[in-house]
Structure formats: structure tokens, C-alpha cells
Design a protein around this nucleic acid. Structure first.
Lengths: 126, 126
DNA sequence: GTCTTGTTTCGACAGGTGTCGATACAGGCG
DNA sequence: CGCCTGTATCGACACCTGTCGAAACAAGAC
């Protein structure tokens, strides 16, 4: 037996924090339902930009007041999108005095990123 | 081939293929629209499982006939989902004789994976 | 207390999405 | 040729989603 369970996954180890790449083995049904919710949260241009605005903001967090400016949509709509991101587990939020701050949850992004990792070298594409 | 293409890259290298992580700088509007389409294609459990079934299938490709079995939905619905994945640029397809084969396009997955890469170490969470 | 500003929730509406059965198309086989 | 099997398209339906304006809530300033 020795290294029976050893599984080679050396450099993918980090990915294994939660999920191995989806290209390695078929996704289970429940896992797919779960992951689909996260991807759905990312499936809107406004939310993608919100997420990247928050993540790239100084200090890693941004107040809602920083986020309404760059968009053409109304402020309630921004609030709605932030709620979607929050409920998908992609960002956290907290009220501090007058303002509400949002920050990304890196583990969630890392999880999705790992899942999508393609064995580009191995695949040889086609 | 030796290890010409071998490149350990996995991480940063793949990122550079197209996009740096979204956490580094705000996403442009057009880029966001484009990426949102890909994520939307991933935002359905059936499509996620389809993609992972195709990717993990022997030879890196699968015939539609291999893909209808594992699901509770009808064959036209599978066909519809495959079309969505194809139009999002996530898979390619080709008819060979009687059967139609699908394979994943690794570059597309790598692009999304790189985009989501969080500087976990730097972020310090929170 | 009242007022003001920042944020969320509510209701409503147009448009998009997942699913189905029925049907059409493509290609091999007799 | 006609038939059979694998796959895609069509039309219809219930449901979900993004957006808005109006209103409610939260916290500080006066």
C-alpha cells in the first residue's frame, strides 16, 4: 500500500483547501448546487466590478459610499447587489458608525479559483 | 515533447495569459460584461456538472451520449446547456460520425481561475 | 427632541432562464 | 431507398432577476 492514498497532488495542495479542480473528477450534485450559487453571484457585470472595487480598495475594504459613484445604477440597486455578494459568501460587511464597510472573503475566491484550475500543461488542449 | 510545455506555472503564469487577479485593480466595464457571461454559464448546477464530466472524461472529451445519463433532466435540456457552455467559450464541440463530442477549453478556465486568485497571504483575511 | 445623511427594504415591472414535449436534422445501416 | 438512432431546434410555460422609486431604518449633528 504505502502511498496508496498518497495522491500526488503536490502543487495543487493549496487548492485542496477545499476542492480539487473540477477537471479531475465529476462534481457531486450537492457540491454543484453550492458552487453554482457562488458563480451566479459573479454572473453580473455590476457585481463583478463591485467585487473588484472592494478588493482593490485601499485597506481591502470599502464603504458603500465609495461604491455607488462608479456605476450608472441607482443606489438601492447597488445595495441589492452587495446583498447578493454577501449571501453568496463572497464578501463580509459591518457597520461602523455612519458607514457600512464591505471586504472580500479571500477563502471563497480561492475556492472557486482552485476549482477552475485547468491542467493546462497536461491537457495539451486539442 | 519532453518538458517543453511542461512549465510548472499553475499559478501566476496562467494568470498572465490574460488577466491579473481582480483583487489588484478595478475591473473595466467591458471586461466585466465579458467575464460575467462566462460566470453566468457556470451559474447552473447542471452546467457545472456537465463541464466537470467532460473535463474529467477519459481522453478529455465526451460524447453527448455519455452526458445525458447522469442527469434527471431531458435530453433537449442537456443540449441547451451544452450550447450555453459552448457559446460562453468554455467548451468546444465537433461532430464525428454519429456522435458529437465536447471538450473543455482550458484557456477559458485558466482565465477565470486567474481572475479569482486572491492574494490570500497578503490579504491577511478579515 | 428634529433634521440630515447613509444604507437597506419594499413593491412593482420588464425581460431573461430552465425546463419540457414535439419536431426537425444528420448520418449510418439494411 | 427507407429506417433507426443520436443530437439540435422550436414553442410554450413557470419562475427568477435586475432595475427603479418610494419608503423605512440607523446614526450622528444640531
Amino acid at each position: 500500500m504505502s502511498n496508496l492514498d498518497l495522491k500526488v497532488l503536490g502543487q495543487d495542495e493549496a487548492a485542496v483547501v477545499c476542492c480539487s479542480p473540477m477537471v479531475r473528477e465529476p462534481l457531486g450534485e450537492e457540491a454543484a448546487v453550492d458552487l453554482a450559487k457562488m458563480f451566479k453571484a459573479l454572473s453580473d457585470p455590476v457585481r463583478l466590478r463591485l467585487l473588484s472595487l472592494i478588493a482593490s480598495h485601499e485597506g481591502g475594504e470599502a464603504c458603500v459610499c465609495d461604491l455607488t459613484g462608479p456605476f450608472d445604477v441607482s443606489q438601492p440597486t447597488i445595495s441589492h447587489h452587495l446583498k447578493v455578494l454577501r449571501e453568496a459568501g463572497l464578501v463580509g460587511s459591518e457597520r461602523r458608525g455612519t458607514w457600512v464597510y464591505y471586504w472580500v472573503l479571500p477563502a471563497a475566491l480561492a475556492k472557486l479559483s482552485a476549482l477552475l484550475q485547468a491542467p493546462a500543461a497536461a491537457g495539451g488542449s486539442r
